[in-house]
């Protein structure tokens, strides 16, 4: 059948798209270095917007001091707005589980609402981790700014290890599911069509997917939001931990919005791809779900391993 080609193309495209997300989030070394090319207009503008997030970041320090020293409503409003905006832009940068959330949806999620829920819960979890970590280490144990910041990579390492495990688990589930699915059917009869039209029982799917969803939120959420950590550490030095915690929570609303956009887009493209696959009369199309799950799992696994390895090197600066 000639229809195998579009199905394969579809898969390749989808997996490439996720690969590029993964790549964009984490600088992989490019062999031979990248050629000097002028940026596209869009990426140039995005870069500038990303640079602007640093202005919000910087302004938050002054705003936090103002809330602490004056306690005025206006100052609180300024800090809240800055935190929210900073969250939106900050989440576009590395971290915040975008790759993992998107790949997880690719692997194991179909509902827009749940996609958004996953995005919000992960963002909230990252803020809570930051608040807990700084609260425990800096406030309760009285560690210095430096020591607390130094402990963060260890927490991150645990998160990355869990992420890699989640990826491995998804691959394993896909392989097992794929085998169970593939064997009882003969290769000569056209089962793709009939099978694809069978609705998966929603309740069963939900009960099954819940474990993975929880695992995903836990693994992503264990990595504290770096922006929140910085603001919280600063808040501690100002004797204003609670103001910092409030700022971190508002920030997580902002990051959740950015991650949600990606989550919704992923759900849309995945569902469209599944619909197209359903109409195709090829054995590949019938196996699209386990293949997506394995592909998504592979990205998560690779990403977790790369991040984990990346925690052993850090930037050096003469002032730090």
């Amino acid at each position: 059948m000639k229809r195998i080609a579009p199905a394969a193309l579809l898969l390749a495209l989808t997996i490439c798209a996720f690969g590029s997300v993964a790549w964009a989030q984490h600088a992989l070394p490019i062999p031979g270095g990248s050629p000097a090319e002028a940026p596209g207009m869009f990426s140039g503008i995005m870069r500038y917007i990303m640079a602007m997030q640093q202005d919000y970041y910087r302004s938050m320090a002054g705003a936090l001091r103002a809330v602490n020293l004056q306690g005025s409503l206006a100052a609180a409003w300024t800090l809240a707005s800055l935190s929210f905006l900073y969250g939106i832009f900050h989440a576009a940068g590395p971290g915040h589980g975008k790759v993992v959330v998107a790949s997880y949806i690719l692997a194991d999620e179909r509902e827009v609402r749940r996609g958004i829920l996953v995005a919000f819960l992960s963002a909230l979890a990252q803020a809570i981790t930051a608040i807990t970590a700084v609260g425990l280490l800096s406030l309760a144990l009285g560690l210095t700014h430096r020591a607390t910041a130094g402990a963060v990579p260890y927490i991150e390492r645990a998160s990355f290890a869990l992420i890699a495990c989640l990826g491995a688990w998804l691959i394993w589930r896909a392989v097992r599911g794929g085998l169970e699915h593939g064997h009882p059917h003969g290769h000569h009869h056209d089962h793709g069509h009939e099978h694809a039209h069978l609705p998966t029982p929603a309740e069963l799917k939900k009960a099954k997917g819940f474990k993975e969803m929880a695992a995903m939120i836990l693994s992503v959420g264990l990595r504290p939001c770096s922006g929140a950590v910085l603001v919280l550490l600063f808040a501690v030095t100002q004797g204003a931990f609670l103001i910092g915690a409030a700022s971190a929570l508002i920030m997580s609303l902002g990051t959740a919005i950015t991650v949600s956009v990606l989550a919704v887009l992923t759900v849309f493209s995945k569902n469209a791809a599944l619909r197209i696959a359903r109409r195709m009369d090829s054995p590949w199309a019938a196996r699209i779900e386990p293949i997506l799950m394995a592909g998504g799992g592979a990205i998560i696994l690779l990403f977790g391993v790369l991040l984990f390895a990346g925690t052993f090197t850090g930037p050096a600066s003469p002032l730090l």
Partner: peptide
């Protein structure tokens, strides 16, 4: 998605 992905520089 591609745009969102590429916009976030490595």
């Amino acid at each position: 998605m591609g745009i969102v992905a590429l916009s976030a520089q490595p």
